[in-house]
Simulated assay, not measured.
Amino acid sequence: MATTHALLGMLLAVPVLAVAPEHAPAAFLAGFVGGLAPDLDLYAGHRKTLHYPVYASIAAVPAVALAILAPSTWSVGAAVGLAAAALHAATDALGGGLELRPWEGASDRAVYSHFHGRWLRPRRLVRYDGAPEDLALAGVAAVPVAIAGGDAVATVVGGLFAVSAVYVVLRKRLAALAERLVELIPTPVRPYVPARYLDPEG
């Protein structure tokens, strides 16, 4: 879930709170944004256009080194944001495939690796976005972030987790609803609809 990625990104900011608390607000914000940012490609080549499991990880290394050597709001924010984006892309490979109903396991595409020039296959350690284990992972990330981050961060975390819980309950119904709604989309608009809605097998 996008909310799980956001919470995992914010989790990366917790060490900053311990060693450089003055930069923690920027780190939490950067973790949130970096965790969500790759999914901005949802309607334009999802899990390919803005997902870089290898290159983002490589880029995060010097960014983290710079943040350690010359900590500032900008260097720490960039390090956490890049690391969160890299973590997002990498963890997508551990989940289900890129399809409308990923619990059926029909797709062999999890996330595109520009480094390898091919799609990485889904590992399905989390069977699909919105699976109960996805919510459990969100909870594991949410607890330390909420405890360490203070009232404002805890409020954001609580909201993210609540959205996650509702999504998990409705996940399979939303897929069925999407299939019905896509039939109502006018033909001229169909090229702008993500492929998985037009081809549920992904």
Rank of each mutant, 00 (worst) to 15 (best):
A59V: 04
G97W: 01
L12W: 13
V166C: 04
P21G: 00
R190Q: 14
A79E: 05
L11P: 05
L17A: 15
V14M: 01
L7T: 07
P38A: 06
F32T: 15
P102N: 15
V166M: 00
M10R: 12
A93K: 13
A195R: 15
R190F: 05
G105V: 04
H46S: 11
A136D: 02
E104G: 01
V14F: 10
V33S: 10
G77C: 14
P15S: 03
A63L: 04
D199P: 08
P186K: 15
R180C: 03
V14G: 13
R173N: 08
V163A: 07
A176I: 00
D151N: 15
S164R: 03
V140Y: 13
Y55S: 11
P186S: 12
K172N: 14
A178N: 08
G95C: 12
V145H: 07
G97C: 01
T91L: 11
A56S: 10
A146S: 02
V189T: 09
T3R: 05
S107V: 06
A138V: 00
G81I: 07
A136T: 06
A175R: 03
A65P: 03
D151Y: 06
G35P: 08
L177A: 11
W74A: 13
V76S: 15
V156K: 06
E99F: 10
R121W: 01
I68Q: 01
L184A: 09
L184K: 02
E133D: 10
L50S: 12
L29S: 05
F28M: 04
L50C: 01
L120G: 10
P71C: 14
L137P: 08
G96P: 05
T3K: 10
G202C: 10
A136V: 12
R196K: 03
G149S: 09
A195C: 12
D151K: 07
F115C: 10
